[in-house]
Amino acid sequence: MMTRTWLITGIGSGFGRIMAERLLGRGDRVAGTVRDRAAVADLAAAYGSRLWLDVLDVAETDAIAGTVDRAWAALGRIDVVVSNAGYGLMGAAEEVSDAMIRHQIDTNLLGSIMLIRAALPHLRAQGGGRILQLSSMAGQAAFAGGALYHATKWGIEGFVEAVAQEVGVFGIGCTIVQPGGARTDFSRRSAQVAPMSAAYDASPSRMVNHLIADTAHPPAGDPVKMVEAMIASVEQEPAPLRLALGSDAYRVMRARYAERLICLEAQRDVALGTDAEERAEGDAAWFERHRKVAPAPALQRA
């Protein structure tokens, strides 16, 4: 297995911390970002120059490009960019404040977008690489009480799916990682919970409050196994567009995909009946012809 250099945001805890530990332990180099260097002081002491660090809060989107440029300048080449930093904002849409909404979007959605955009010129210049974007089963299945979190994850999935089509021709592969519940500190330490309004006590949105408060039933997902699967995905050719992790993620997303297909099929006649008859066939043929101009995903390389 070849030695690689990785750029990972948010290595202070959770998946990012576990990934940095595993990669450094096997001899890879890591450029990691943290909001507080003290969180990784032990890793810095243990691995010296193989761990490059920068202080970054991805919600401060104007700072992201500078961090990415400095990492490439210091390390020369970065093979894998892991957009990991993020958190969950929980509560009914009416309960969360405007400031909470803006910070959630700045962190999870705009922060991830700006990280990937900053990395792309470097990846193109070096002839390719990989991007791993941490999403969630929440990027495909929505539940009451997580509307703003879902908005960021559904948004970043659409962004990365489109970018993957744009950059495959440059040898850049993109993978959207969709973990289910994992035994990290994400839900209980990294989640921000909106103040509860009595008006929503009877709403299904209250489920998330009970879930966060319930420490007696840990999630099924093993975060170490999940990280190992993320790392292993970089060896796959072509890059898998999506990587589902956890039995709950598989079960929930499979059920939602099936529900959507049933709903779509029920609307077939309505959908087909709203085309302009004289142009419908020509427009469809034009789209398919131009969509296939770029090389297929199978031509992506690491």
Rank of each mutant, 00 (worst) to 15 (best):
D201N: 15
G158L: 05
Y200F: 05
T152H: 05
D201I: 10
C174A: 10
F170M: 03
A229D: 02
T175K: 04
V234D: 03
E161L: 06
Q165H: 14
P238C: 04
I231H: 06
D214C: 00
C174Y: 14
I212C: 05
T175I: 02
I172D: 02
I131C: 03
V163H: 11
A162M: 11
A216W: 14
I212F: 13
E157D: 04
M137E: 12
G221A: 12
D222T: 00
D185H: 14
Q140V: 01
M230K: 04
L211W: 14
Y250P: 09
L134P: 05
N209Y: 15
D248L: 00
A141C: 07
I212S: 07
G158V: 02
V252Q: 01
A151R: 13
S190Y: 14
S136E: 04
S135I: 02
L134A: 06
A249G: 04
L241M: 07
D185S: 14
Q192R: 15
S247W: 12
P219I: 08
T215A: 15
E237H: 12
F170W: 08
S233Y: 04
A244Q: 13
D185Y: 13
E235A: 06
S205I: 12
L132D: 01
L134S: 04
Q178N: 05
V163D: 06
H217G: 00
A213R: 13
R251T: 12
E166L: 03
M196Q: 14
D214P: 00
A191Y: 11
G139Q: 06
F186I: 12
R189M: 14
G146S: 10
M137D: 12
T152V: 01
P204T: 03
K225C: 11
R251G: 10
M226L: 05
Y149K: 08
P219R: 11
N209C: 13
L243I: 01
V224P: 08
F186L: 09
V160A: 12
W154F: 12
A199P: 10
A202M: 15
W154S: 05
Y250H: 14
A213S: 07
G246V: 06
E166A: 03
P240Q: 06
V163K: 09
T175N: 06
F143L: 07
A147M: 09
S203K: 11
L243C: 00
G145I: 02
R183G: 01
